[in-house]
Nucleic acid binder design. Structure first.
Length: 421
DNA sequence: TCTGGGGTCCTAGGACCC
DNA sequence: TCTGGGGTCCTAGGACCC
């Protein structure tokens, strides 16, 4: 059996932990630059605010219904996630952290347990220790656990946020209830194709011929079908090192000059390098892209990316920044209003097995230097030490008008509790 | 005025090998 | 007239996830 544990409305719930007065009230969290809605409490969902809604289009709804708006506070969410995962890891020797707010627990060997109660126990524990409400779906396969989790979320009163699929009847009932577009792994394109042949529910999907599924949804679709039929096909994944690391941003305004973009791209490359060092890897390729604003139909559009193979593996901020800005110069075209840029690094090798090059190698002095920079930035706060190519005066140009404090990761932001006489 | 960011996996087709 | 067979590796693009 597998359990899928999922935090309810995670980002909104994190904000509520420190402002319990917001329980029962509509809360929404916005993306960087306060652009789109990326998390909503149930009350906000009930107001018809969709996922990804542009904030400016829904300003009136926010005002009319007193929706509490927050700028994304990823330092807080990351730390809360870590706390939740720590607790969950006590409930199975085999856990896969699937996303910031979700984890699978493998429960083989737990057959003698009352799994329904086990779910309640996990829920009580996480809620009491972190204040984050969770839902649990428990079933014989991962895809079915996902489905069970959806039921637990959809019917909180009946299920008390834990739903167990442990019989064939329950499996069929769940799949007949689940719309095919809500199946894990079925996105927009697949839904279109499936609806066209009359497949409306997850159950319908499991009744299709294997050949048809393989042909139109490829091997991934076929595995999914089997998993939904109760044949465990999707196993626990080893979460090791990342295979690519990205830092990309939409700008607050438009950038028109190469030097403006160079500063941004250099910063992004430095941030990628830092993440890369944290997982003790070197990279061999770097990709840089720039875009104009696709929503502005009145402006000329340009979008380009370029991948560069590095002459030697590196994780030095200076090297990566140098290569990234070189790449940028190759794709930059004057005369456009740029709205977005990013750096993606990939093709990693672990620190320990880096292949040295006979003629060209990373400057050996960079490694101790980077270690020192990382240590200083950890000690004195991020971005205290920057590259010369970065804008030293730039503070934080992102629009974040409703940012909550970093309650759990910055000493000065810790809450004060006043006890009445 | 205003529209996020960060990932994974698979497939088809081309280039190349013997 | 007629032109093999079996591989690997790489890349771009598409689909999906949160």
């Amino acid at each position: 059996m597998y359990a899928l544990i999922d935090c309810n409305n995670f980002y909104a719930s994190c904000e509520r932990v420190f402002q319990p007065g917001l329980n029962g009230k509509p809360v929404a969290v916005l993306s960087n630059n306060d652009g789109c809605v990326i998390a909503r409490s149930n009350e906000a969902k009930a107001l018809g605010i969709p996922m990804g809604a542009p904030a400016f289009e829904y300003k009136k709804v926010f005002d009319d219904h007193g929706v509490h708006i927050f700028s994304a506070n990823f330092a807080l969410y990351g730390d809360m996630s870590h706390r939740v995962m720590n607790i969950l890891s006590e409930y199975s020797p085999d856990m896969e952290i699937y996303s910031i707010d979700e984890a699978f627990l493998q429960l083989s060997g737990f057959e003698k347990y009352d799994l329904q109660n086990y779910g309640y126990q996990i829920r009580r524990h996480v809620t009491q220790w972190t204040g984050i409400p969770i839902s649990a779906g428990i079933a014989p396969t991962k895809a079915l656990a996902k489905a069970a989790n959806r039921i637990a979320k959809k019917f909180p009163k009946k299920t008390k946020n834990v739903y167990l699929i442990d019989t064939e009847e329950k499996r069929i009932k769940a799949l007949r209830w689940l719309k095919v577009e809500d199946v894990w792994g079925i996105g927009r394109q697949h839904t279109k194709r499936l609806n066209a042949i009359g497949v409306k529910t997850a159950y319908d999907f499991t009744q299709l011929e294997d050949d048809w599924v393989k042909k139109h949804l490829a091997i991934v679709g076929l595995r999914l079908k089997q998993d939904l039929q109760g044949i465990p096909t999707l196993g626990m994944e080893e979460i090791q090192r990342k295979k690519s690391i990205a830092t990309t941003r939409t700008f607050d305004g438009n950038y028109t000059t190469l030097s403006q973009l160079k500063e941004r791209v250099s910063t992004f490359a430095g941030s990628c390098a830092e993440k890369l060092r944290r997982q003790h890897s070197y990279c061999n390729s770097i990709m840089v892209f720039i875009h104009t604003n696709g929503h502005r139909h009145d402006l000329a559009q340009y979008s380009k990316n370029i991948v560069i193979k590095l002459p030697y593996p590196t994780n030095s901020s200076m090297e990566l920044s140098k290569f990234a800005t070189q790449a940028l110069s190759q794709i930059f075209m004057p005369g456009y209003h740029y709205k977005k840029a990013g750096v993606v690094i990939m093709d990693f090798t672990p620190e320990k097995t880096v292949q040295k090059n006979l003629f060209e190698n990373s400057n050996p002095k960079h490694q101790p230097l980077m270690q020192t920079v990382d240590a200083l930035n950890t000690l004195y706060g991020q971005q205290k030490i920057k590259l010369g190519s970065q804008d030293a005066k730039r503070v934080w140009k992102m629009k974040q008008e409703r940012l909550s404090p970093k309650y759990t990761t910055r000493l000065s932001d810790i809450i004060t509790v006043h006890a009445a006489g």
